Simulated assay, not measured.
Amino acid sequence: MLQFKLEDEEGRQAALERYDISEPRIEPFERITSLVKAVLGVPMCAVTFIDGDRQRIHTRQGFDVAETPRSASFCQHTIASTGPLVVPDARRDLRFSDNPFVTEGTLSSYLGVPLTTPDGYNLGALCAMDTVARQFDPAEIELLARFAALVVEELELRTIARYDALTGAVTRRTFVEESKRVIDRFARYARPGALLLFDIDHFKSINDTFGHPAGDDVLRRVAQVAEETLRPSDMLGRIGGEEFGILLPETERADARACAERLRQAIASLHMPELSGRGISASFGLSCLSGFVGSPEGWIAEADAALYMAKRSGRNRCVDAGALDEAPGPVAQELSWEI
């Protein structure tokens, strides 16, 4: 690992945020920590991450502390090194002798191996801990390093499963999972949220006329434009084929409409030479959270109904499902809006 990666805290934090560690239980982590605890004969083992000014103890065996200040963690010392951190007796180590876990007798010895990403950032540590002083021999250190590599491998696999390989948008499964979280926040705290579905107009014709490689380029460019248009808190998902979804948490109807129109215009302004002058457009359906939305599937279906009306009424426009509910009849042309 290059030394500057150890000192690049902004890059390290950004690397951590690329990985999906939001789930409270990750079964492979639990199996790994359970094995480490048994094989090394330690009473405690954990997968930890340094996240800003805190240590997140994600998966733990033998104790039940979920979070500590970064300043009070052994892990912050582990991620500052390219190799394992071995502390045979924390009571005699000036770095840790006044640590509250040490002074109260909970932790006396520590072995930690950095969780290093393929691009060289230390996200956290896999650590084994004992209540008594002990020496960890080279074979035990090597064994823990191998288990740490498995933790990183699992993080990578989860990331691959989370994102669509062609466009970089999240997969439908991930999109649905995050939709449920937004719905839950609405139900519990009445926090607003909006969902956009959009579909590239006449995409089959693009594939048939210019070939699938050109169609793939269109998908990539549209996804790129969407990502450039959205806020960091928004989520772009590829729902299937040429259909995308956008989650807009903490967003009221007027702002969601404005976002949809900005993106519609951005897509319509795309120029791709490989399409020989042919333009690109997209149709949008919007659904804002209400008491009638109880599931991700229902929310997506409501936005999809609005998207269907946008396509039926001429494409390259946005339709609000809320306006559909209020309309006296099938007047989709009147339900689209302009900003």
Rank of each mutant, 00 (worst) to 15 (best):
K311R: 15
D201T: 01
Q135D: 07
A133W: 07
A266V: 05
L263F: 09
Q224T: 14
P138D: 03
A256F: 04
A310Y: 11
A169I: 05
V176R: 10
P43S: 14
F49W: 09
F203N: 04
A321C: 06
E297I: 01
A301Q: 09
I32P: 03
V47W: 07
L324V: 15
E228Y: 04
P118I: 06
L126M: 04
E9R: 11
I183Q: 03
F136R: 12
E30Y: 09
A133I: 04
Q13I: 06
E23L: 13
L248I: 14
A256Q: 07
A301S: 11
E67N: 08
S313R: 12
D325W: 02
Q265Y: 02
V170I: 15
Y110D: 05
D199E: 07
D20L: 08
T48G: 03
E154H: 02
I206P: 02
M44G: 07
P88G: 08
G11M: 07
Q13M: 10
R56T: 07
I246K: 07
H58I: 06
G291T: 01
R188H: 09
L236E: 09
A190S: 14
Q55K: 08
E156P: 02
T159R: 15
Y121F: 15
A268P: 00
L157T: 05
L40W: 04
L197H: 00
E178V: 13
L219E: 03
S108K: 09
D119F: 02
L6I: 10
L219A: 06
S287H: 10
R25K: 13
E227V: 14
G105S: 13
A72K: 13
R191Q: 06
S336P: 00
V182S: 00
P84S: 14
I339C: 10
P232N: 13
E177T: 11
G298H: 08
I26Y: 02
V47N: 08
I160G: 00
E227C: 13
A72H: 13
T117C: 04
A66C: 02
D208C: 06
D8S: 03
M235K: 12
